[in-house]
Design a binder for these strands. Structure first.
Lengths: 258, 258
DNA sequence: GCCGGTCAAATGACCCATCAGTCGGTTGAC
DNA sequence: GTCAACCGACTGATGGGTCATTTGACCGGC
């Protein structure tokens, strides 16, 4: 999004750069400097993101991407060696964005205290990231698995990095005696799996719940488990302690909450 | 009738029916009865399962399937309207198999007692199902998402059914006061997500752990959570109570356990 | 300020491999 | 002899990747 404005500025023609899809587009200013080229590259990646997200990898043609980027077919190949290479670049970009989004959330002062506070922040950040751009999250963190060994490896690497980040937090918490002593990687993976799946789910079905509420639920489940607890252990988060994280839901009835 | 024997016999080459891929195959006996045709249909689905699993949906051609089924290209279209229809049939078959595999496990007398016993059985059955045929589980319960809206809907339906099954168990347990009172569908989905993701993970990376051990871990995590518990609550399963489910691992070190 | 030369960015018609699906022909079980 | 299972060559469409050509930003000389 931001890049459009940027390129529009560079483009020179003030104002009505936002034209309809089908209209013959004003030709973009030729990229000259390295900075220009980096920006153009980024524009193509953004175009790829929206078209791939909308139609899926296989159903999207390079021509589609070119059109969305307001470039000719051949120009895409000037910046990327192949359709695959373009997709790899897109994966890289998005993975970096997700990671930094989470780390940002972790760095910020946690709202609340206790074992769950940083975890809650990270979980919430993940949900937010996914819901900010549902289509591309879906494409990149789920569909990409099915695109063949090449992409699968890449995605697996990204996922491993994510699990590794979680593992660090887990080990720290274990050393501090804040959580039980279990194989950390297994714990980390389980945490990542749960978060990831729920984030995915929220992409597809609108549960109508705030990211924070769901984050509370997840953190509570992870920390306390499902067994009833007789000693009034308080739940995570600032909400009322006695009840679930599902924000004053009537409860009981088995309606689709997520 | 003994038509199995018949078809095997007509098939000719006694015993070594498992021939290499490329060898010119003896022509199959023509399917005549409805039963024959059902069997032939099933053969094609099996062939589809192995080829799709090996190469992925898009990379597999109908010719590949035909070859694997020892049929001609055109014959596949005698039994299925399109490549898509074939894949839908395959999904249907596998989903049914998974479901009945789990229900079978739930029906069997649980080994152990307590809240976790049936859950543990079901989890273990799921893991076993996935590891019995890794490639096709991967294809059908993960990759199929990326194949376009049509397949996604189908897969989503299957998944919903799965979650629904879990939900029944959850509601039952809640009513009995065995687990905490949370929105049941959310709980069910979380359980399904965790199980599903770990099963997926086990497809790709060999953790060297028994399905039972991992099932113990998952159930323990789901029931007790990660917080340390001061009152010697025993863990689920027959293993040693004090320590993790990871079967005598040296522990501590952050090595990849899963 | 103008001009023509240079070279890389940008273009899009074209090439060609791939495959889903068709159809007229063949065959074997009854 | 009949007819439906079976066959496989063919077709038409699609789309990734190439490349000869065009364009335009910049520069140095005047």
């Amino acid at each position: 999004m931001g890049s459009w404005a940027e390129s529009a500025a560079t483009n020179g023609d003030g104002g009505g750069a936002m034209s309809g899809a089908g209209t013959p587009e004003r030709r973009l200013r030729r990229a000259v400097t390295e900075e220009d080229k980096g920006r153009r590259r980024h524009e193509i990646i953004e175009a790829a993101k929206s078209t791939f997200s909308a139609k899926g990898f296989h159903a999207t043609t390079v021509a589609d991407v070119a059109r969305a980027a307001h470039l000719s077919y051949g120009s895409v190949y000037w910046y990327f060696d192949s359709k695959d290479a373009l997709f790899h670049a897109l994966m890289e970009t998005e993975a970096r964005a997700l990671r930094s989004s989470i780390q940002e959330a972790l760095a910020a002062p946690p709202a609340g205290a206790g074992a769950g506070a940083p975890l809650r922040e990270a979980v919430q950040a993940t949900f937010r990231f996914f819901e900010r751009d549902r289509a591309s999250a879906k494409l990149l963190f789920r569909d990409a698995y099915a695109l063949g060994d090449h992409f699968e490896e890449h995605l697996f690497g990204i996922y491993e990095g994510f699990v590794g980040d979680v593992e660090e937090v887990v080990v720290e918490a274990m050393d501090a005696g804040m959580i039980i002593d279990l194989p950390p990687r297994m714990v980390a993976f389980s945490v990542a799996a749960l978060i990831g799946q729920i984030a995915q789910r929220r992409i597809v079905t609108d549960d109508g719940l705030e990211a924070g509420v769901v984050a509370d639920f997840v953190v509570s489940l992870l920390l306390y488990g499902l067994l009833p607890r007789s000693f009034g252990q308080s739940r995570v988060g600032p909400g009322d302690p006695g009840r679930t994280g599902a924000g004053g839901e009537p409860g009981e009835s088995g309606g689709p909450l997520i």
